[in-house]
Nucleic acid binder design. Structure first.
Length: 788
DNA sequence: GAGTTTGAAACT
DNA sequence: CAGTTTCAAACTC
């Protein structure tokens, strides 16, 4: 059935596509070299639309789904129409119809192809397909269907068709996209099931991989980068497997890398495949996707599988949302959430209107899923807990995040591999190092090429990046930077907990939603992938007490849609501490003060005494003075600031580059960048949360996410000028006053702030620049969710 | 590196 | 909600 119907469907679908604007759009892209063209287009979509208001976990879990939808939409927009009827077949046909889509799908479907490809390298190579996209797609589809897909797809298809719930949900959500996703999800599920027993994993992986790639990189560019990176890494790491693959399709791989996310996906598949052999390679992939299960069949597979099944069920229940994303995020450990969130945001922003419309509930559900630590491969996977997700998510999304993720993944994997040996901390170092280095190199390559900065970023990867920026201001900052460079606080924050077992907010790592890593000198640490259950349970408890416990502490006015030209936007870093500080002796001039630490001024919500916060006093009087101070600090820290900037630089540059083109929605990432660049910006800890929220958050995920965010943000600020960033932050902080109350604390999370999408637009504008105060993670989502 | 200070987090 | 204790980071020496 599959093949014949597919063919027919393909024809019908094609006609539909032609009619659809999407189709036109794709055509414009150019089918032949669809990959690249598509890729860009996708990236565009993601970028342009990327803004996700959603950041908040609770409020709009849908963001996830949406994100995926969006991603897929962007990717498979063409296919959507057809999917409604018969997801599997249509999708394939659609793919065939549209070279790009076909490629993507092919990649996804590749599983079959892989099996085939394994035997037949030519077929495997996604790149090849792309070349002859039109013809091959169908063939590939048919092929895929025949071998493995046939078995799986039929079921999925039938289910999709039969299952009213699924179909309904999909239809409700978004007929085309959702349906397609649902199908994919189903397939994924099936695949996952099969994976356990068989090698079909590839298919699912591919599909997921494609999605992930797309999703992972809200911004096409980022996605590309990520893909490329992983590929590169893979090449580097999984020499053996890669070599094999490469032999088969060196050209293809290269093409894929260069070309499209889609192609990349295909490449990833291969990579993944390889990765199974080489854990590192897998990790790389993991960065982008949730390759963990696949890549780490050994230790983690069982776990991942279990998770996958559960997740799958969840997805199905939710509305066929893609579990792959969740997995991915989870696997990434700490940061995943953020990434997912960011993705969601991006997607929502981009597609907010219709497609995104996905049910908020779904989003929440997805969030929940994410939050819940998937057992998947104990590996690092979900390091992050639910609440954390938000912060992290924002950060994670960035390219940096991806890098971080890689690190994390490695660490996690190693951890898995390694018996808990280090209860206190994982020693990602070994694994991380390579990754980090690779990531760093990549960053360097991509961005400005600030080697040092990049390295630092990579090391700090996680939230630290921001911290570094902040650090610059203070003497310690300098120290930290110096240290960090070597330390790489890297991937994650480091804690030194002795009594809390790293299961309380006392623990920076835990509070940041990150698993403890080697650098940590904690004792009796339970904040490790091995203890996911415990970690999750603890987080839940904490969240039950304080839903915002893991929310970013610093909320910043996002430029939600900062006007590129407006410097004002740049200047104000209207960021506020969520709850405000309670300093009595530090005068808010030391890191003891969370506001100061977060690089934000004190606000009304603060109960500090003798506030002298350089970033902005409670009374707000100091703003000017603060700016001056900040400037001074900057000057002082210049070297550092420069470094930071340099580090940031790449991102910034990217932002600039990207931004100009896309009006990207402001993503948390943007903020993150700001933070990073911000000389004054706070430093370490706050950064974590702040990163996410503020933008510094990006730190986590490392360059990748940051980059994306930047792109997404398209903030004029960053793009326009580096200084502006710092300026922006400062001013924002100062401005923050306006928002502080509302922005920060109100933050209760998500919903409150979110509620008023206006807030984003409306509120922010209120302040001077019109920036909106947004929770780092939450930022945009309000607008999105409110819709519903 | 040890000790002190500080303020958030947790507890009552 | 307020007060107290616990905790770990920030800071000092």
């Amino acid at each position: 059935m599959d093949t014949p119907e597919r063919n027919q469907i393909g024809a019908t679908s094609v006609s539909k596509f032609e009619d659809s604007p999407v189709f036109n759009y794709i055509n414009n892209l150019s089918p032949i070299q669809p990959v690249k063209s598509i890729h860009t287009s996708q990236t565009f979509n993601s970028l342009s639309f990327a803004s996700l208001p959603s950041v908040f976990t609770s409020p709009h879990a849908s963001s996830y789904k949406e994100s995926r939808f969006l991603r897929r939409h962007s990717i498979s927009d063409l296919s959507k129409p057809d999917f409604s009827t018969e997801d599997g077949s249509k999708v394939e046909t659609d793919r065939g119809a549209t070279g790009n889509v076909a490629e993507l799908q092919d990649d996804s479907s590749a599983p079959d192809g892989k099996s085939d490809s394994l035997s037949n390298p030519s077929t495997e190579l996604p790149s090849e397909r792309p070349v002859s996209t039109n013809e091959e797609p169908q063939a590939s589809k048919s092929d895929s269907s025949h071998p493995d897909c046939d078995q799986k797809l039929p079921d999925s298809v039938l289910k999709s068709g039969e299952d009213p719930a699924l179909s309904d949900s999909c239809v409700k959500n978004k007929s085309g996209n959702e349906s397609s996703e649902a199908e994919e999800n189903k397939q994924v599920i099936n695949h996952t099931e099969e994976r356990e027993g068989t090698g079909y994993d590839w298919e699912s992986l591919i599909t997921e991989g494609a999605d992930l790639l797309i999703f992972s990189s809200p911004n096409g560019s980022e996605a590309i980068r990520l893909v490329q990176k992983p590929l590169d890494l893979v090449t580097g790491f999984a020499s053996s497997t890669l070599s094999q693959i490469m032999e088969n399709d060196n050209a293809n791989l290269s093409k894929m890398r260069i070309a499209d996310p889609i192609e990349c996906s295909g490449g990833q598949h291969e990579i993944e495949f390889l990765s199974s052999q080489a854990g590192e390679a897998c990790e790389l992939k993991d960065m982008d996707q949730g390759m963990d299960s696949l890549s780490f069949p050994n230790s983690s597979n069982s776990v991942s599988r279990e998770i996958t099944d559960d997740e799958v069920a969840r997805y199905i229940a939710d509305d066929c949302k893609p579990a792959s994303n969740l997995y991915r995020g989870m696997r990434r450990r700490c940061l995943d959430f953020e990434a997912a969130v960011s993705r969601r945001k991006n997607l929502e922003d981009t597609s907010n209107g219709g497609s995104v419309s996905t049910h908020p509930e779904e989003k929440t559900a997805s969030m929940d899923k994410q939050l819940v630590p998937y057992k998947s491969g104990g590996v690092a996977t979900r390091c992050v807990l639910t609440g954390i997700g938000l912060h992290l998510n924002a950060l994670a999304t960035t390219s940096k995040d991806a890098k971080n993720l890689n690190h994390e993944k490695f660490s996690s994997e190693r951890q898995l591999n390694l018996p808990n040996s280090s209860a206190s901390c994982h020693s990602p170092s070994g694994g991380l190092d390579p990754l980090l280095t690779s990531a760093v190199t990549e960053r360097d390559m991509d961005p400005s090429g600030n080697g040092v900065q990049n390295e630092e970023d990579g090391a700090r990867a996680s939230a630290y990046v921001l911290a570094e920026d902040f650090n610059q201001n203070s003497p310690k900052k300098k120290r930290r930077r110096l240290e960090p460079a070597g330390e790489t606080e890297s991937s994650c924050k480091r804690c030194n907990c002795k009594k809390s077992k790293c299961l309380k907010l006392y623990c920076e790592c835990f509070a940041a939603g990150v698993y403890c890593i080697e650098p940590c000198s904690c004792q009796d640490c339970f904040n490790k992938p091995i203890h996911e259950d415990t970690v999750l349970a603890t987080r839940k408890q904490i969240e039950s007490r304080n839903p915002l416990a893991f929310a970013p502490k610093v909320i910043r006015n996002s430029d939600s849609l900062p006007e590129p030209g407006d410097e004002s936007n740049k200047t104000p870093a209207s960021a506020r501490h969520k709850r405000g500080c309670n300093c009595k002796k530090s005068s808010c001039l030391k890191k003891y003060c969370e506001c100061y630490q977060g690089g934000v001024g004190c606000s009304i919500s603060c109960r500090c005494e003798g506030c002298k916060n350089a970033f902005g006093r409670k009374d707000g009087s100091s703003i000017l003075g603060l700016e001056a101070e900040l400037e001074e600090e900057e000057t002082e820290t210049n070297p550092k600031s420069v470094m930071d900037k340099g580090l940031q630089g790449p991102e910034i540059q990217n932002n600039e580059e990207q931004n100009p083109g896309s009006a990207i929605p402001s993503t948390p990432l943007q903020l993150s960048r700001q933070l990073v660049p911000l000389p004054f910006s706070s430093r370490s800890k706050p950064l974590r949360s702040s990163f996410l929220n503020v933008g510094s958050s990006s730190g986590f995920y490392g360059g990748h996410k940051l980059e994306k965010p930047n792109i997404l943000r398209a903030q004029p600020d960053l793009g326009i000028n580096t200084k502006p960033v710092s300026e922006d932050e400062m001013p924002d902080i100062l401005r923050g006053e306006c928002s502080p109350g509302a922005g920060v604390k109100t933050g209760s999370p998500n919903s409150k702030r979110i509620s008023p999408p206006q807030s984003d637009f409306g509120l922010s504008p209120l302040p001077r620049t019109g920036r909106k105060l947004i929770l780092q993670s939450i930022p945009s989502f309000p607008s999105l969710t409110p819709q519903h």
